[in-house]
């Protein structure tokens, strides 16, 4: 492997500069280091878009935990991405209250207009991925969905094309 390729794959630490200061401030809030685990993982995901194994190792080191422990926690929670996700990762609620208001039709419209062949599989251009999720806590706003970290309410079959256009 040439030096250049090696360089390309080297993991740049997340917790430097401002991000390190942020973590240090977080640590003052709790009596244990472990309690800063969820917030620290959020910082990794904000910086990288997902939580790579190296990120887990970095967090483990800083909080005096083992990487295996951190991985065990990451896998419990649905919001940490263990793989890079599509540019627009669309999560639609289809739990009963939204389901009776036509959430499945919204899902189908999203699949159709993004060109995604199935749920959970990226579109051919790698731009979109659509998944069903459980209650987003916005059951009166049918249909609610999240695009990455952005919450969007009251999506209908008819509003899907405009919504996708606005994402860019």
């Amino acid at each position: 492997m040439s030096a250049a390729t090696h360089q390309q794959f080297r993991y740049e630490p997340v917790f430097v500069g401002k991000r390190k200061e942020e973590l240090d401030e977080l640590l003052t809030r709790y009596p244990t280091k472990m309690a800063a685990l969820l917030p620290a993982l959020w910082i990794v995901q904000e910086e990288r878009g997902w939580v790579p194994a190296e990120g887990m190792a970095e967090v483990a080191h800083l909080l005096e935990l083992t990487p295996a422990y951190v991985k065990g926690v990451v896998t419990f929670y649905t919001m940490y991405h263990q793989h890079p996700v599509a540019k627009h990762f669309i999560q639609v609620c289809t739990t009963s209250p939204c389901n009776v208001c036509g959430a499945e039709d919204v899902v189908n419209a999203l699949l159709k207009h993004t060109g995604c062949e199935e749920l959970g599989v990226n579109s051919a251009d790698g731009k979109y991925c659509v998944i069903e999720v459980e209650c987003l806590g916005a059951c009166g706003f049918n249909t609610p969905l999240m695009v990455n970290e952005r919450f969007i309410e009251s999506v209908t079959v008819d509003s899907v094309p405009a919504l996708l256009a606005s994402l860019g």
């Binding site: 244990t32 472990m34 685990l37 969820l38 993982l41 419990f76 929670y77 649905t78 940490y80």
Partner: peptide, 22 residues
């Protein structure tokens, strides 16, 4: 900030989660 898990609304699960556990 939680990270996606209905069960963390149960009071003792919430405490475990806050402590940095599953």
């Amino acid at each position: 900030k939680g990270a996606g898990a209905y069960i963390c609304g149960e009071e003792t699960a919430l405490m475990n989660s806050l402590e940095g556990r599953r």
